[in-house]
Amino acid sequence: MKPTATVVAADAGSLLAGKPARSDGITAFVARRRFVNSVAATIMFAAAASSIVITCGIVAILTFESATFFSHVSLLDFLTDTMWTPLFADAHFGILPLVAGTLVTTAVALFIALPMGTIIAVYLSEFAPHKVREVIKPATELLSAVPTVVYGYFALQFVTPALQHVVPDLPTFNMLSAGIVMGIMIIPYVSSLSEDALRAVPMLLREGSYGMGASRIQTAFKVVMPSAVSGMAAAYILGISRAIGETMIVAVAAGMQPNLTIDPRQPAETITAYIVQVSLGDLPHGSVGYQSIFAAGATLFLMTLAFNVLGHYLRKRFRH
């Protein structure tokens, strides 16, 4: 170590760090290192803490704007009114139609994504040869690389006309086609994570099962899957919260008319589509209509938060 020019800088550094500068070269060198280290650590801590700032920002904005919203609209009306017409002269603020739209499209999507994702995961983990898996897994993950607005276009321009041949009197905008396409989009979220969970099951269990004379399918469903259940549940929950929060597919293909129904063949508006609809127009900042998107957003946030917390809890169990 040759502390020549660096000593000056080091002394300055150690002074900044609040430590007495010494002429001793080594000490200065160590002090400088300490200083650099602590500066780096502080900067990186600030970066890590910024994620907390983001969360606080989300919660604060949603709470603040919803609070203003609920000073105009009673919470009871919000939860029980069956009409959502905040932009009409006769304004109603019942969130139920939007929640129904969200839940129906989510249900259709899950009806596709959960069985298919599970089958693909079991197939890739327990049946497919190694080489096939190495190709198929990244290929299915490409499904989640397609921008959702492109899926929306596909749902409206391809899937809906195709479905109209099968389902009579299907309107141009309907929850069925949006839900199906959303389901396909979610498949990789379910299949990849489930496959990881299945593969994490120790080989010994499989060998034991085969040793007892079980077939592949018995091993997969009666031995491997029960051991991977919490990991798979976490994958399902990720899929569910994706479906609830998905915006562009439903905004393009499911229509923008609030509609309290459980019939997936009908058009309806989801919470997310409503936020898009309002944002496309220009509502004045501070109006009740403007605040209503935050109240709708807060509802959405709480719905996904509940699922995320559940998922985190399951992942934690799965890791142990």
Binding site: I58, I244, G245, T247, T272, I275, G297, F307, G311
Partner: peptide, 11 residues
């Protein structure tokens, strides 16, 4: 990571 992207938009 699980918050829907539109919520980030509102924030």
């Amino acid at each position: 990571a699980g918050v829907p992207s539109i919520i980030y938009g509102l924030m």
